[in-house]
Design a protein around this nucleic acid. Structure first.
Lengths: 217, 217
DNA sequence: CGATAATGTGAATAAGCATTCACATTAAGT
DNA sequence: ACTTAATGTGAATGCTTATTCACATTATCG
């Protein structure tokens, strides 16, 4: 019964295709016909796999959540000091968003949630989980002394989100004219300065981020 | 000829009403009928003042741009040291966004831009101007020594945007459960730490931000 | 091979909504 | 007060698009 597998594959194909449509045309441009065309079938065939457009949207959100969880897990397992893992995650996240521009468009679009509080709650949960993972890394940093104790880990996590979210938006709005990668590299410096323990402050700043060995002296 | 004035007032009423609809129903829920109902007229009457829905959206964007320019100008004229003006602007901005939740929904919604590159460019320009004003304040801070010289003012401006943008999104997604004001207060501390000159670093951190008198020693 | 369930097709349905139009009402200027 | 342009009204139009349905095709399993 390779049939069940086929079905799963088809569903994923469809979700990916939908992601592509959102990438190209925005959420407003998400039409069943476009999705079907990308898969290579006729619109009505989509209803063999999904109950309707809303279900396709849900599938996209599941896909995105999976991808996000993937990079978070990968970064968490990295054999690096906590803050380096965080920076690694930041890069991964940027790469992911650059590849699937639909991600911020979907997650941060109210359209998806209007009149669907269950979905809204699920998205909030996804973001919350992401933030919790980041906060966890920050707390590890606080435990090993690479992050000052008097900042709130959850606040730092939201600030971390603020490192690339505006960058992603500007990247989109400027049609790629805004260099998000450069911004993030530069911003990370100031970001880290703000949460590093006073003892590790360096005058030259810029590109050198202290490694984890910097236990409080 | 109070007629011309009346027309202007009507147009503004309509734009405000549209803003209210977006606030309540999201951009997807922006329907001519709802806008008309809020104004107290019938849908077809809207076409006496606007050529169509797209024109109404443009009017909303104009309104928003005006409001943003307003708080920026007000904050810039405040008789305070640059970084205090920036913090003041941050609070004003949060208040504005809390009152008109439609603002982030519109400005950062790709829906508005899809198939309308002119509008996209205009929005990008609005954001850019805002960022330029913030960067200007940062440069003033660098000039008077309250901000370190080795950070890029434009980068800081985007980071500043990142202070409340994620907060606004979380506020919306959590139906107000996320306390954006508290986040911003806390985040400002770490933000300022990150860009303050090394000499002014304080161990206790938290709520005390150095005043402008802190010329470099 | 033949039964059968899954998947794909094309045409038809129908609902939502912006927009238009012919006509009514209001208010400004003389 | 009368003319006229502006504004408002209600019904009608038409386009876009999701969705459905009867029928065709495919592939799996006995």
């Amino acid at each position: 019964m390779a049939r069940k597998l086929q079905t799963e594959i088809r569903k994923e194909q469809i979700a990916e295709a939908a992601l592509g449509v959102v990438h190209a045309h925005g959420l407003r441009g998400l039409r069943m016909e476009r999705v079907a065309q990308r898969v290579g079938i006729v619109p009505s065939a989509l209803y063999r796999h999904f109950s309707g457009k809303q279900a396709v949207i849900d599938a996209m959100l599941d896909l995105i959540r999976g991808k996000l969880e993937g990079i978070v897990a990968a970064a968490s397992d990295e054999p690096l000091p906590p803050m380096d893992r965080l920076r690694h995650l930041l890069r991964q996240h940027l790469a992911l968003v650059q590849h699937f521009q639909a991600i911020p468009r979907l997650l941060f679009s109210d359209e998806v949630c209007v009149g669907n509080s269950a979905r809204k709650a699920r998205i909030y949960e996804t973001i919350s989980r992401y933030l919790e993972a980041v906060a966890g890394l920050v707390r590890q940093g606080q435990a090993d002394g690479s992050v000052r104790d008097d900042v709130d880990a959850d606040t730092v996590a939201v600030m971390y989100l603020g490192l690339f979210q505006p960058a992603a938006i500007l990247m989109f709005m400027s049609d790629g004219g805004f260099d998000a990668a450069r911004h993030i590299d530069r911003a990370w410096g100031a970001f880290y300065e703000g949460i590093a323990p006073p003892s590790s402050k360096v005058t030259t700043h810029s590109h050198n981020r202290p490694h984890a060995g910097a236990k409080r002296p």
